[in-house]
Amino acid sequence: MSAPVVEISGLNKWFGQTHVLRGVDLTIAERERVVVLGPSGSGKSTLIRCINGLEPYEEGTLKVAGVDLAGPRAEAVAAKRKTGMVFQSFNLFPHLTVLENCTLAPIWVRKVPRRQAEAEAMAMLERVKITEHARKYPAQLSGGQQQRAAIARALAMHPEIMLFDEPTSALDPEMVGEVLEVMTELAQGGMTMVVVTHEMGFARQVADRIVFMDAGEIVESAPPTEFFTAPKSARTREFLSKIL
């Protein structure tokens, strides 16, 4: 068995005096699909933002691909680069075309020649089925198309793990399906994924494991069938009773 992609132990984080992550332990194996559920404000987004280095943390260790993010800077930067992030609000670069969005980081960070970067980006856009919009600007695309472009942009950096921070929460209902479809295909392709979402159908079908967070801690971690049918903790049962 290969080394875990992410190893978190005793992770604590504060926003000012607010204790938002309280001793989180989590290990994610290669090719594992983890869905993080929990009420808003439970620390789900903060946790995955810690994994790709967008948020600093005060205590604990967090290793990506075996490298401690608090360790030597150059190594930590290289490790963070192995994570790909998809945001709730897409955050595509509005002054660049979809194709340029997908080639920017490969060209400037991975130092790939432009032509090769474009070919790779087109392959990624093919995967998310928006090759016909490659030369358009983000503002000319629908929300679902923009989010799919954002997924392609993250994939273009060849991440070892993809992090999704509520990828469908900002979408009109009729566009949720197309984004989930792309994510499901990605999962079937063997991508390691951590997904913060409120889409229970996706969680049931795609996840290997559901992690339930509440008030900054991981309350329960179980395969979906077990999680939805026989939750162990009272807090999980209360949460499920509200949403199902």
Binding site: G53, L54, R81, N91, F93, H95, W108, R153
Partner: peptide, 24 residues
């Protein structure tokens, strides 16, 4: 979110400023 997205893609602060933030 613009500079966060740039950082998440591995761009360093200088390139984030020069390529993403300043043009906008």
């Amino acid at each position: 979110g613009q500079s966060e997205a740039a950082r998440a893609l591995g761009l360093d602060p200088w390139r984030t400023t020069a390529l993403i933030v300043l043009p906008q």
